[in-house]
């Protein structure tokens, strides 16, 4: 029987679905990331105890510090698990384009990071008494985590081959995540102060253009990262 290889879109969706199904069964990764996120918010809550004025100001910082660090941890773990079990090698043998593999992985990484962001926002809603009803906050979370997940997936695929994975991944991902953090924190800060879109459109534009640049470069370069 000849099985027709799936199209780019099909392959991408199937890879994402496979990862999600595996995660739904074990729930090890998302629970670890969520717990890490909540813990970090708690740490911020108690380190800022007695300074309620600072707490309100610190919200964007707390969100993005937590998302970036929890995201780096989670991405590193999910990719090394695949590498250690040999799943990645099997996927590379499949008759699908490498870009489909990349985008499938990216969707899952994005969903995970986004989930952490939502959980962290929810925790801050309760602990920091934050008003997160502005749609802009969630939009920034959406496009900020997209750029981060893109670079995390690309560079995470490199870090699994490194000698000290756990330290190498943050070192190579965080400098690239820094511009995302700068844009997102400034945008979220302006949003919380209830400023008009024109006040933070620059930062939203920075995030959107970083997403485009990162996606385009990953599309071009991922093949070179995973060949072998």
């Amino acid at each position: 029987m000849i099985v027709k290889p799936p199209s780019f879109f099909q392959a991408m969706v199937r890879i994402a679905a496979k990862d999600l199904r595996a995660e739904m069964r074990s729930r090890s990764l998302i629970s670890a990331m969520a717990l890490f996120g909540v813990l970090t918010v708690m740490i911020f809550y108690y380190t800022l105890e007695g300074r309620p004025d600072l707490r309100a100001e610190a919200l964007p910082a707390v969100l993005w510090v937590t998302v970036i660090f929890a995201g780096t941890q989670g991405l590193g773990r999910s990719l090394s698990q695949e590498h250690d079990r040999g799943t990645l090698d099997a996927l590379l043998l499949a008759p699908i384009s490498r870009s489909a593999l990349f985008f499938g992985k990216l969707i899952v990484a994005w969903l995970f990071t986004l989930t952490v962001g939502v959980i962290v926002s929810g925790t801050m809603l309760i602990l920091f008494n934050a008003n997160l009803s502005n749609l802009g906050w969630w939009l920034m979370l959406l496009i900020g985590t997209l750029g981060f997940a893109t670079m995390g997936t690309l560079l995470g695929s490199m870090a699994i081959h490194a000698r000290a994975r756990e330290t190498t991944l943050p070192i190579i991902v965080l400098p690239i995540a820094l511009p995302i953090v700068i844009g997102a924190v400034n945008a979220c800060g302006a949003i919380l102060e209830g400023k008009a879109f024109s006040e933070w459109s620059t930062w939203a534009g920075l995030l959107a253009s970083l997403d485009v640049i990162f996606l385009a470069l990953s599309f071009l370069l991922f093949d070179y990262v995973v060949e072998e």
Binding site: A162, I172, L174, P175, I176, L178
Partner: peptide, 20 residues
């Protein structure tokens, strides 16, 4: 900011080389 990011990126480049 861009300059700081650049410096960190190239320092990370050397770290990456050392780790593979």
């Amino acid at each position: 900011n861009g300059m700081a990011v650049m410096w960190l990126l190239y320092a990370a480049y050397l770290t990456l080389r050392g780790a593979v």
